[in-house]
Computed example of a mutant assay.
Amino acid sequence: MDDDSVYCAHGPHQLASLADGPLDGLRFVYKDLYDVAGFTTGAGNPSWFQEHAPASYTAPLIEMLRYAGAMAVGRVQTDELAYSLNGCNVHFGTPINPMTPDRLPGGSSSGSAVAVARGDAEFALGTDTGGSIRIPAAYNSLYSLRPTHGRLPMAGVLPLAPRFDTPGWLSRDAQTLEQVGSVLFGLPKASLNAPSLAIVEPLFARLPEPLALLWQSFFKSISSQFTTVAAPFSAAQIDALSDVFQILQGRQIASLYHHWHQMHPDALGKDIDQRLSWTATLSAAAQHDAEQKRQQWLSQLHSCFALSHFIVIPTTPDLSPLRTADSLALGEFRMRLMGMTAMAGLAGCPQLHLPLLACDGVPFGFSIIGPRDSDMQLLALARLFSQL
């Protein structure tokens, strides 16, 4: 608990289980966006922490896990206000990625991912707006689920952009991921009947050559297990979703945080400060145009789900960036990345990350996107893929 880049000094770190249940003996950590009664939620920022009062109640998701037998063993760090995918925090440092120490851990659920990857807990609660569960999972070789938007309560969880925010969790194995999902959704494990997969081939084809070859070899080894079709999306079409998502997300962020940002001009790290300033420049006309483009995407996605049960994409456009990457390189990477994360985000669809690949020891993986409310089926797919 003495690693400030992973754990929050303000805690609490120990929350005992409240009953026996299916998660008996499992430890979890929770992101510093989740409220615990009597303690202040810090959102990764000292100024925010100092001027906010302790929470009056504990986030229901934490309580659900404790009543199922799990125990909390730490409040963990987040990128400031959860508005980054890198895992860097100017105040508390960048956690060491235990899988590849020279590379970024990913964010904003950075502490969640690192604590689980290094064995401090069996699973972690995080949040996901534009990729904050999926990306740290990819960088730290973890299983993760971004659930259907709105399916799990965000009560007692600090928002970033509510129309896209969702809780999520990650683990080192598919069994734990599914166990947690069964508790939170209140459903038994799902069965699968000949699932079909739509592969977004242009995204795999433009991966760096070693990763593209890695995927081709893996796909060849498992393709006989599934019916597969080519998804009807181009890479350019998906790239365009980045702007659509960031405009819609940005308008909500500005409505929530612009005033606070104005009152605290020196409180944030440079990259997050610049993004928050940018959100204040977004116009209603830009939002209207983005809303129309979102509707077009929903129609295209619906058409794809009519062809296949699930959609398969690489979770990231490349390996996790090096810790030495400059801000320009990280900005360019973010733009490519967010088109891919926006595919599910704009539609509120669930997305599963599978950490089944590695390139020279560096984690890499792929994602499966399902229709809304197919969360338990995705978790069953995680179980299936882990056994292949």
Rank of each mutant, 00 (worst) to 15 (best):
P265K: 01
P265T: 01
P265A: 02
A267V: 00
L268T: 04
D271C: 10
D273R: 09
Q274C: 12
R275Q: 11
L276C: 06
L276F: 05
W278C: 10
W278P: 09
T281G: 11
A284T: 12
H288S: 14
H288M: 13
A290M: 04
K293E: 12
Q295V: 10
Q296C: 10
S299H: 12
S299N: 11
Q300V: 08
I313P: 06
T315V: 03
S320E: 07
L322R: 14
L322K: 14
T324P: 12
D326E: 11
L328A: 15
G331Y: 09
G331D: 14
G331C: 11
E332C: 13
E332S: 13
F333N: 11
R334H: 13
R336P: 03
T341V: 04
T341D: 03
M343H: 06
A344L: 05
G345W: 01
L346H: 02
A347G: 07
C349T: 09
L352Y: 01
H353D: 00
H353F: 04
P355Q: 00
L356I: 02
L356S: 06
D360W: 05
D360C: 09
G361Q: 03
P363I: 00
F364I: 01
F366N: 00
F366L: 08
I369P: 09
G370N: 07
R372T: 11
S374C: 10
D375T: 08
Q377S: 15
L379M: 12
L381W: 01
R383H: 12
F385Y: 05
F385V: 02
F385S: 01
